[in-house]
């Protein structure tokens, strides 16, 4: 498809967030050239990496430091469009900052947001985004009306990074948001990490997640112990995050992280729509739940109907005995 496709890239500490390269792969499904937009030094230093994934131009947004990035990136994109022309689509991660950026762009460009996309394609001169509903049972295809930029929120791990045969040395353009952008009035005062030790939840080969069926907050320690024994990461359902048992950074699901480990062990999780969207791509799923009708059993490779609070300690002991 003719016309450029832009991607909004986020960074994690000193490196590019993994989603950025997934977005580059998604953008090339639509067309090209691909333009990457981002904030800060870590983004600028990733030019070669982005070029190796088919990005032709970097748009560096100046003045991000100390403000919420989503709104600033959106305002800067409008400035960049006046220099580089209007893209056919702008992709961002379905993340906190990604959603902020798309929401602001939606107002600034008077275009709708197609959110939670797991696939993108082109039909004639229309960009089509697919998202899943009802816990992943149905797939809905959506498109924007002619003449509007397709703003697409892409779920993590929906695309695999796809390096190009001939890496590009990207051109670099620096833009700054208009000084009256409301995002300048937000001030980021401090930032703190709440991640546990061990592998990251969305990168771990094993995820052990707990839900309401654990009965009480103190029983979550057993979930952490089991995940530690298996070299994995502990996760959680929205229910126990809302209940304050564990921090948000642990949440798996539509609102939280998307995980695709080799094995996902769901303990005391019934399988609400919002949870299953975040883990149904796991290679294998083991579920322990006392309700035989729990939706999680419909997607589990191995399902145990029983009391998680009794089975979990026995499972931990059995694994320890093997060592």
């Amino acid at each position: 498809m003719a016309g450029s496709v832009w991607i909004i890239c986020e960074t994690q500490g000193e490196s590019l967030a993994p989603l950025a390269l997934e977005l580059a792969a998604a953008a090339r499904r639509i067309g090209g050239p691909v333009v990457a937009v981002g904030c800060g030094g870590a983004f600028s230093r990733a030019a070669a990496e982005l070029g190796a994934h088919g990005v032709a131009t970097l748009v560096e947004v100046g003045g991000c430091e100390g403000h919420l990035q989503g709104g600033l990136i959106a305002a800067a994109v409008v400035e960049a469009i006046s220099q580089l022309g209007t893209p056919v689509a702008i992709l961002a991660g379905q993340t906190y900052t990604g959603r902020d950026a798309l929401a602001h762009l939606s107002v600034l460009l008077s275009a709708p947001v197609l959110g939670s996309a797991v696939n993108v394609s082109v039909d004639g001169d229309t960009v089509v985004a697919e998202n899943v509903i009802f816990g992943g049972e149905r797939v809905v295809s959506s498109a924007v009306e002619a003449g509007k930029v397709a703003l697409i929120g892409v779920r993590a791990k929906s695309f695999s990074p796809d390096p190009v045969a001939e890496p590009i040395s990207p051109a670099v353009v620096t833009v700054t948001a208009s000084p009256d952008a409301p995002a300048y009035r937000s001030r980021v005062v401090s930032s703190r990490s709440e991640e546990h030790a061990g592998p990251k939840l969305d990168e771990a080969a094993v995820v052990v997640a707990g839900g309401r069926g654990l009965g009480a907050q103190e029983n979550y320690a057993a979930v952490e112990e089991l995940s530690g024994l298996l070299g994995g990461a502990p996760g959680a359902s929205r229910a126990i995050v809302d209940a304050g048992w564990v921090p948000y950074a642990y949440q798996v699901g539509q609102t939280g992280k998307t995980v695709k480990p080799d094995v996902y062990i769901a303990i005391g999780i019934s399988g609400a729509t919002q949870h299953m969207v975040g883990m149904k791509g796991s290679k294998a799923i083991i579920a322990i739940n006392k309700d035989p009708e729990a939706p999680i059993f419909r997607i589990a490779d191995l399902g145990v109907v029983g009391d998680a609070q009794k089975i979990l300690p026995r499972l931990i002991e059995a694994i320890k005995r093997r060592r």
Partner: peptide, 21 residues
Amino acid sequence: GERVTGVRDAEARAAGEVFED
């Protein structure tokens, strides 16, 4: 500004073995 162009069933993930503890 947007429209739904189609709806289909997702590829079902086959349920495995479920047993009682």
